[in-house]
Design a binder for these strands. Structure first.
Length: 579
DNA sequence: GGGCCGTACTG
DNA sequence: CAGTACG
DNA sequence: GCCC
């Protein structure tokens, strides 16, 4: 068995990559030496492309040089910014859109490059705009987002291939990576942030900072709900109109994985195992081709031995015995059902099961349920129903309108998966602040009252602290509850959190997520001697007794960009945060 | 073998 | 306090 | 579950 495996492995390396996946017979990327301009691309997808390029005979370089055969980029803008217009024109390198790789992978062969070539035109600003438009990347990276992320990224010029690999992978090595990054960045402090902060617009010493970008960044981060006029506001903040989510070509794997993840988490309380599936499926759903053999995903991050075996089983038999086994267990089925109710977790599900309860109908008769659980149960079906993007947009406008009527200048924006560009969201997360630094106090109570009177908010689930006039606490008001889309009885989950202005960037990052990114940022912060949470970045110091103490004063940051910068983490546009 | 985010409400 | 939730 |  072992020998057999070894033999096969050697064969796979020396020979071609044939074996079980006969359809991808040869190394069709052989002879390609490529450099990737990473700007404006989801890190996960990027990594997958690199992996496949290597696997199929190509070479990936960390830096651009003239001997390369190919350069891949999202648009003309990004590539010229990174490599230089003149140098590119001079070299014979093929400058191609990323879509070429995707299409090759889908087709299983090397396609003609003709329709993928990015034309490097002489320095005309308006030209690059058109080429972005035509790049075919609009579906997942509208030009606006691309260009703005470009500027921000290039200013903090790190992210080599290996950096990305490590960032994308688990947090273990993050300390090492970040040290390297940190050096560069703490010295050269993020240009974009600097400008934004002090309002010193003019492009500073760095060549890649421009004013348009500053304006965009600030309007994107602070979305003042204008005086009762919701219309034009929309276009200013939560950019993604259509959503960036690329199609998932591997639902045959992610579907079962998602199911088993929910069971481990909500029924069995095995969070860590659940998290492993969760991370794996976020990788698998970004693979740009339909997986037909485990050989195609050899060496992918977050997919270890056990998951590989599961995937192999799914591919070869169409079944997932581990999941089937769990679903055939009646008790597990009941626990999973109970656990899917808001407010009921694994422990409560188990307790209710032990009482002999088996259905949601029976659950309704139980008198030990807390009021929030009761509401969760009553609207169980509504709550698990996803909300389409355009409806969220309308509801955001409703909240903004009422908010600014109550308090002119208030900034209200919908974060969460909506801000990350998802086409469907499970709930809405409103992050609120006021630029004057004090008008946010007491705002939430009023807002909730008003929105209830408008028959938008319906039930309370959880009510957070009131702002304290003593300033010892963090003073973040929160409200969790349910709402109705106008003209419809169905309930949706809504969260509000109101931050003092100086904590807003931290709150916005935290409530935009995703959770994988949050955890990674917090891990990184810890490795650098900080503690990061939704209201600040706090230095950890050693006191006289050698104990670790978290300082109560945060490192000040005036924008999300600046938080990333302080941590030495590559900037990600909201739609790039679907890690 | 041990790590795996940090916080805040509810009862 | 444990349990649950949020990203 | 994965990854040092």
């Amino acid at each position: 068995m072992k020998v057999e495996k070894k033999k096969r492995k050697r064969a796979a390396q020396e020979e071609e990559e044939e074996e079980e996946d006969g359809e991808l017979g040869d190394l069709y990327f052989r002879g390609i030496a490529a450099y990737f301009v990473e700007t404006g691309i989801q890190p996960r997808r990027l990594q997958i492309w690199k992996q496949k390029l290597l696997q199929l005979g190509g070479v990936v370089e960390d830096h651009w040089s003239e001997h390369l055969s190919h350069v891949f980029a999202a648009s003309v803008e990004t590539v010229t910014d990174k490599c230089g217009r003149r140098k590119l024109k001079k070299s014979k390198t093929n400058v191609l859109k990323y879509t070429w790789i995707e299409d090759c992978l889908k087709a299983g062969k090397c396609l003609p490059i003709d329709s993928y070539v990015l034309d490097i035109l002489p320095e005309n600003r308006s030209v690059s705009r058109n080429s972005t438009e035509n790049s075919g990347l609009r579906d997942n990276a509208p030009e606006k987002a691309v260009s703005s992320s470009l500027q921000k990224l290039t200013s903090s010029e790190r992210a080599t291939t290996s950096d990305w690999m490590q960032i994308i992978n688990e947090g273990g090595e993050m300390g090492v990576v970040s040290k390297g990054l940190h050096k560069k960045e703490t010295e050269g402090v993020c240009v974009n942030c600097e400008g934004g902060l002090h309002n010193t617009q003019g492009a500073s010493s760095e060549e890649d900072c421009d004013m348009k970008n500053e304006a965009e960044a600030s309007s994107a981060e602070l979305a003042p709900a204008r005086d009762a006029a919701p219309g034009p506001v929309d276009s200013l903040k939560n950019e993604p109109e259509a959503g960036y989510t690329p199609p998932n070509l591997n639902a045959h794997i992610t579907g079962p994985f998602s199911e088993i993840k929910d069971i481990y988490k909500e029924a069995l309380g095995d969070d860590r195992r659940a998290f492993s599936y969760y991370k794996a499926l976020s990788v698998l759903e970004k693979v740009p081709f339909k997986i037909t053999s485990v050989n195609q995903i050899k060496g992918f991050p977050t997919i270890g031995k056990s998951l590989m075996e599961s995937i192999h089983e799914i591919l070869s038999t169409g079944r997932f015995s581990k999941l089937e086994h769990l679903k055939n267990d009646n008790k597990v089925r009941v626990l999973a059902l109970f656990g899917s109710v808001w407010g009921i977790g694994p422990a409560t599900a188990q307790r209710l099961y032990d009482k002999g309860l088996r259905t949601l109908e029976e659950l309704k008769t139980d008198n030990t349920l807390t009021p929030p659980q009761r509401i969760g149960l009553m609207f169980h079906n509504d709550i698990i129903t996803k909300i389409p993007r355009h409806e969220i947009k309308e509801m955001e406008a409703i909240v903004q309108k009422s908010g600014s009527e109550l308090c002119p200048g208030i900034s209200i924006m919908c974060g969460g998966s909506y801000r990350r560009g998802k086409a469907l969201s499970g709930d809405m997360d409103f992050v609120i602040t006021h630029p004057d630094g004090h008008s946010h106090t007491g705002f939430l109570h009023e807002l909730v009252r008003k929105l209830k009177s408008e028959d938008f908010l319906t039930e309370d689930l959880r009510i957070g602290i009131e702002h304290s006039t003593e300033g010892t606490d963090h003073g973040v008001d929160t409200w969790f509850g349910l709402c109705k889309y106008p003209g419809r009885e169905m309930r949706h989950r809504v969260d509000f959190k109101v931050y003092p202005f100086d904590q807003y960037p931290f709150g916005l990052i935290a409530w935009t997520g995703n959770d994988i990114l949050n955890r990674r940022l917090r891990l990184l912060a810890e490795a650098k001697g900080y503690s990061l949470d939704d209201h600040g970045l706090y230095p950890i110091v050693t006191d006289a007794n050698g104990g670790k103490v978290k300082l109560s004063v945060s490192v000040p940051c005036k924008s999300e960009c600046e938080v990333f910068e302080k941590l030495g983490f590559p900037w990600l546009e909201p739609h790039e945060r679907n890690l």
